[in-house]
Amino acid sequence: MVRTGKTVSVMNAHGARKMAANPQYPVGSYQVTENKRLLPIPQREVNLDTLTQNEQ
Rank of each mutant, 00 (worst) to 15 (best):
V32C: 03
T33R: 06
R37T: 06
G5H: 03
Y25G: 02
Q24S: 13
V32I: 06
T4K: 09
G15F: 05
L51D: 10
D49A: 08
I41N: 11
P40N: 01
S9A: 11
G15M: 02
E45D: 06
Q56S: 13
A20L: 05
Y30T: 00
E55K: 13
S29N: 10
N47C: 01
V27G: 15
A13V: 00
G5M: 04
E45I: 02
E34N: 12
V46M: 15
N12C: 00
L39V: 12
A21Q: 08
G5F: 04
R37D: 02
Q43E: 13
N22P: 01
Y25S: 04
P40V: 00
M1S: 12
V27Q: 15
L48R: 15
T52L: 14
A21R: 08
T50G: 12
V8Q: 06
Y25D: 03
L39S: 06
A13P: 01
M19D: 12
I41H: 12
G15W: 06
E55H: 10
R3I: 11
A13S: 06
Q31G: 03
M1R: 15
R17Y: 10
N12E: 00
T33N: 03
V8C: 08
Q24T: 08
P26L: 10
M11Y: 07
P40F: 04
R37C: 07
P23A: 04
T7W: 13
E45T: 01
Q56K: 13
K36R: 11
H14C: 06
T52P: 10
T50F: 13
M11K: 06
T7F: 10
A16Q: 14
L48N: 14
K36E: 01
N54W: 14
R17D: 08
V32F: 05
P42S: 05
P40E: 02
T50E: 15
V8T: 07
Q53T: 01
G28F: 05
Q43Y: 12
G15D: 07
V32N: 02
D49H: 10
Q53I: 00
Y30W: 04
K36C: 03
Q53L: 05
V46A: 09
H14D: 13
Y25P: 03
T50A: 13
D49S: 07
D49V: 00
R37M: 11
R17T: 01
K18W: 09
A21T: 00
A16L: 07
L38Y: 11
Q24H: 11
